[in-house]
Design a protein around this nucleic acid. Structure first.
Length: 320
DNA sequence: TAAGATAAGAGGGACAT
DNA sequence: ATGTCAGTCTTATCTTA
């Protein structure tokens, strides 16, 4: 899978130094059967037309048409906005205009105006009247806000939209809260892209209980068969260290302790945040930096009690 | 004031029934 | 499907240095 991903990225990133190449490179040839071509289906899934091979992880490539094909590098008019999974119709809608003139600029007859008005009405209604589309439209509206609140990059946002669409497809939205499911999708996307955001942060920024998001998150994992990379304590460390203003020296020390803890097998079953927080705390104390458990607890989102409990284990485990 | 101790309760995973 | 169990983490309160 990794192989595939690389292949796609390399092809899409190939520069335009040689313009002939743009058309001669079969940029969307299936890497498995090399016969069919890779296309996006309506859910954002990327599949081969010949063998059905599903390529994931290509979402960040959606913007590749944003290149100039003309000699001067200014003409981007032919592309339009990049499509995005965060639009309920992926940004590809067609709307009947409101002008009361025909294509050659002459005004149109009264009766035709009325007809157009009716058509426009039904056009608009039909678009958002599919419950699925209305659901997506509402969810992605909220997603914009959420993304801003949590300072998420576009990659995470698109990933979220992808996950939410899959959930919608599986009818997981039925009888469930849109906001909660969206929050869970956001959290999943964060986990998947290794963007350090805690369950608590996500839950707080949309005023939902943590356990609700957690429950929906597990639902997504189960129903969509998602595989999440394990949380990297190193990322936790830098996040906490930034928040609590901790020196580089202590950071490295903490990292070392985490590695030892993993080697000593005293880290399993423990929350990575609590572990990282404790390592940082001990590192600060060892380096003579002034740091309280409370401050670390505040920055990491775990309680000082947890830090103390981890302290015991870490101290005995590492023979300190 | 920071750190430590203790207790009670929530929520979930593993496992057996 | 349901219940039990060990273990984690949180909240709250009290004590110690």
């Amino acid at each position: 899978m990794q192989q595939t991903y690389n292949a796609i990225v390399v092809l899409s990133n190939s520069t335009l130094s040689d313009k002939q190449n743009v058309h001669s490179i079969p940029a969307n040839l299936c890497p498995r059967c090399t016969k069919g071509s890779i296309v996006s289906d309506t859910s954002g899934e990327v599949v081969c037309t010949n063998c059905g091979y599903v390529v994931t992880q290509t979402i960040e490539d959606q913007g590749k048409e944003w290149r100039s094909f003309s000699d001067d590098n200014h003409d981007r008019a032919r592309t339009g906005a990049p499509t995005s999974l965060t639009k309920y119709d992926m940004g590809l809608n067609t709307t009947i205009g409101t002008s009361d003139r025909d294509s050659s600029g002459n005004s149109i007859a009264m009766s035709m105006k009325a007809t157009m008005h009716r058509l426009r009405d039904w056009d608009r209604r039909s678009k958002l009247h599919s419950p699925a589309d209305r659901n997506l439209a509402r969810a992605f509206n909220e997603l914009g806000r959420l993304g801003e609140k949590l300072a998420l990059n576009d990659m995470v946002i698109e990933k979220t939209a992808y996950i939410y669409r899959k959930a919608e497809e599986k009818r997981l939205t039925r009888g469930r809260s849109i906001t909660s499911l969206l929050a869970a999708s956001v959290y999943s996307a964060c986990r998947d892209t290794e963007t350090p955001r805690t369950l608590k942060e996500v839950a707080n920024s949309c005023n939902i209980k943590k356990k609700e998001v957690a429950r929906y998150y597990r639902l997504l994992i189960k129903e969509l068969d998602l595989k999440m990379p394990v949380v990297d304590p190193a990322k936790c460390i830098s996040k906490i260290a930034n928040k609590a203003d901790i020196s580089e020296k202590s950071k490295r020390k903490a990292l070392e302790m985490i590695r030892m803890a993993i080697d000593e097998k005293i880290s399993s079953g423990k929350g990575p945040m609590g572990l990282a927080a404790t390592a940082l705390y001990l590192a600060c104390v060892l380096n003579g930096e002034s740091m309280t458990q409370e401050r670390i607890a505040e920055a990491s989102g775990v309680t000082s009690v947890t830090i103390r409990n981890r302290c015991k284990g870490l101290k005995t485990g590492l023979k300190m």
